[in-house]
């Protein structure tokens, strides 16, 4: 991927973010995340279900409210309680949803769904300006405005709907787009088109892309950096190729071993995913300890911090940290 111009220019800074849900039974979705997202990069957030990746994405765009911690967009803290502030936020961050079949209001024409944000954010003055802007965006996402005229969502294919939803996000010219599994519900043959479209938009328009996915192969294909999440925490963070070729955290290794490959063996034995070490309720150690094949005593005492182990490559693992330090 092409190198970024100013590596220390962060468009978004997430500080000690915690997001809890629920009244009687508290569900911790995001459990202490510190993350800085560079302007213009494509960052993939990879994790399985329950990792908190979707909640993280929703919190970035203000759809979920942090329980504690801050999110700072371009130097300004996001205030998710203030409705006016949220409206201003949505001019700058937008989201693409996973299910193309329920991402549009079935009673509104696709075209109208795209004009709504233009009007609401007062991005154009006259109806013809509004029209021009929407048509421009439709072309950009590979759709023919004439063909879309008067059509309702159920008259478009899944791939077209997803493109239109990218258009809807793009029409306000946001700085950041959070894409939540945008291709996982599409047929395989359609995915490349959408992925390339997103890559293209990132490269041509400089839109920062936060790409949420469970698929490491897709993450590797599209992103500059990958953040691996497990149970609400980021356990590894670094350049995509480094994460894939030389993973540091045992969970990342587990993901890589389990992922199907077109050529080559799945190196995972059947019984290994059933390793489960018992821990008491007030266990304070590493969140991956119960499933970890390389754990040591230290892992039960406290949570390992996410630290740089190799150049620009961070992982939250005591064992790997020690191993790397002893090499030097």
């Amino acid at each position: 991927m092409k190198p970024l111009s100013t590596p220390e220019d962060f468009v978004l800074s997430i500080e000690d973010l915690h997001v809890h849900f629920g009244g009687k039974k508290i569900v911790t979705a995001v459990d202490g995340i510190n993350l800085k997202i560079k302007r213009g990069e494509v960052l993939s957030v990879v994790g399985e279900s329950g990792s908190g990746k979707t909640t993280l994405g929703r919190t970035i765009v203000g759809l979920s409210r942090p329980t504690s911690g801050r999110i700072i967009l371009d130097g300004n803290e996001i205030d998710s309680k203030n409705k006016k502030a949220l409206k201003r936020l949505w001019k700058r961050t937008q989201m693409i949803f996973q299910d193309p079949y329920s991402t549009f209001n079935p009673l509104t024409s696709v075209y109208d769904s795209l004009t709504i944000p233009v009007r609401k954010f007062k991005l154009a003055k006259t109806p013809s300006e509004v029209r021009a802007r929407v048509e421009d965006v439709l072309v950009r996402v590979g759709l023919d405005p004439a063909e879309l005229e008067g059509k309702y969502p159920n008259q478009l294919s899944g791939g077209q709907r997803q493109r239109a939803s990218i258009g809807r996000a793009l029409v306000v010219e946001p700085e950041i787009i959070v894409a939540d599994e945008p291709v996982s519900m599409l047929d395989v043959s359609l995915r490349a088109g959408i992925l390339d479209l997103l890559k293209n938009l990132n490269e041509k328009l400089g839109v920062t892309l936060v790409f949420i996915t469970h698929d490491l192969a897709v993450a590797d294909y599209i992103s500059n950096r990958i953040a691996v999440m497990y149970r609400g925490k980021v356990v590894e963070l670094g350049p995509s190729h480094d994460i894939i070729d030389t993973p540091l955290h045992p969970y990342t290794e587990l993901l890589l071993r389990s992922a199907p490959r077109l050529r080559g063996e799945m190196r995972w034995s059947e019984k290994q995913d059933l390793i489960l070490k018992d821990t008491s309720k007030d266990f304070q150690g590493c969140v991956f300890y119960p499933r970890c094949p390389i754990s040591v005593d230290k892992c039960t005492t406290s949570e390992p911090p996410l630290v740089e182990i190799k150049k620009n490559h961070e992982a939250a693992c005591y064992v790997r940290y020690e191993q790397e330090m002893s090499k030097r």
């Binding site: 294919s157 791939g159 395989v188 043959s189 359609l190 995915r191 490349a192 088109g193 992925l195 390339d196 490491l216 192969a217 897709v218 590797d220 294909y221 190729h241 894939i244 070729d245 890589l256 992922a259 490959r261 077109l262 050529r263």
Partner: peptide, 21 residues
């Protein structure tokens, strides 16, 4: 075309969708 549409981990090859529907 199907095989070319799938990103394979570590292979770094360009993927391509299948035009049409």
């Amino acid at each position: 075309a199907l095989l070319q549409a799938i990103p394979d981990i570590g292979s770094r090859q360009k993927i391509q969708g299948i035009p049409g529907s």
